[in-house]
């Protein structure tokens, strides 16, 4: 059912160095030549632009030429698995970490992970935020046994790098130089725009436990000794991090 010309048309598309397939003409019998390269170029540009749109901070951090090279390697190794370009690039953070020439930029993978998380949050299902009054109604014992249901748009990222500070430094002019520290970032979407926040001390352990489905009490325990519960909880509730509260 598939002709030879169709097969070779497809197989040469992602191989910039492959010769132009046989059986393709200019409509008047002459070989297609660079007319074929229009398609080859369209495919590479469309996929590269999708990555540029999805990872603007990575592009700023390594510069347009390095980004184009990394994107070109990625799109040839990992073309999209579905027509939903909003999902393209899920493997890009790991891929960047494997590129020898970028090994020196240790934080690059986590910045890419954060951009991916922001995009996933943007397209996540809608859910009204939990009314904080429902927590206040519980006595302490009931609160400790309760479980908070994360909103579909919630994302948590823990990095040994100052990932949010680097992201802001690259994207927003006038931001201070990133401090040398680990950062834990929560992404919430109170309305339609995902917003990243730094989590207070212990907040990441607390939130990770809640995301795993553990009780409020177990999450407080998981947060560790210096945990600032009230700062963490007021940030998360204000930002519609949870959609529901399950009590027994």
């Amino acid at each position: 059912m598939t002709s030879l010309a169709e097969t070779s048309f497809r197989n040469a598309l992602l191989r910039a160095d492959a010769p132009v397939p046989e059986g393709l003409t200019d409509g008047e019998g002459r070989p297609a030549g660079r007319r074929y390269d229009v398609y080859r170029n369209n495919v590479a540009v469309a996929l590269r632009e999708a990555l540029e749109t999805g990872f603007p901070a990575v592009a700023k951090l390594i510069g347009p030429e390095n980004f184009a090279r990394a994107a070109g390697m990625f799109l040839r190794a990992h073309p999209p698995a579905s027509p939903l370009m909003m999902q393209y690039g899920a493997g890009f953070p790991e891929f960047l970490e494997q590129i020898e020439a970028l090994r020196g930029i240790g934080y690059l993978g986590d910045v890419a992970r954060m951009e991916l998380a922001l995009r996933q949050s943007y397209h996540a299902a809608d859910a009204p935020g939990l009314d904080a009054a429902r927590l206040a109604e519980l006595d302490e014992a009931a609160l400790m046994r309760a479980r908070l249901v994360p909103s579909p748009a919630l994302r948590l990222l823990r990095s040994p790098w100052p990932v949010l500070s680097i992201y802001r430094f690259s994207m927003e002019p006038g931001q201070p130089k990133p401090p040398a520290r680990a950062e834990a970032v929560v992404i919430t979407r109170p309305d339609f725009d995902p917003v990243p926040h730094l989590l207070p001390q212990g907040g990441a352990g607390f939130l990770a436990a809640l995301i795993r489905g553990e009780t409020f009490g177990a999450a407080v325990e998981a947060a560790g000794a210096d945990f600032d519960l009230s700062a963490t909880l007021s940030l998360l509730l204000q930002q519609s991090a949870f959609s529901d509260l399950l009590t027994d």
């Binding site: 059912m1 002709s3 010309a5 169709e6 048309f9 497809r10 598309l13 992602l14 398609y39 369209n42 495919v43 469309a46 996929l47 999708a50 073309p79 999209p80 698995a81 579905s82 027509p83 370009m85």
Partner: peptide
């Protein structure tokens, strides 16, 4: 066409016009 072996190429690519492709 835009998908080949489960890889989506994000472009509108051409096909030959034959009885076979017509049926497809």
């Amino acid at each position: 066409w835009s998908t080949h072996d489960s890889a989506f190429l994000n472009d509108l690519l051409p096909l030959p016009y034959t009885p076979d492709t017509l049926a497809r």
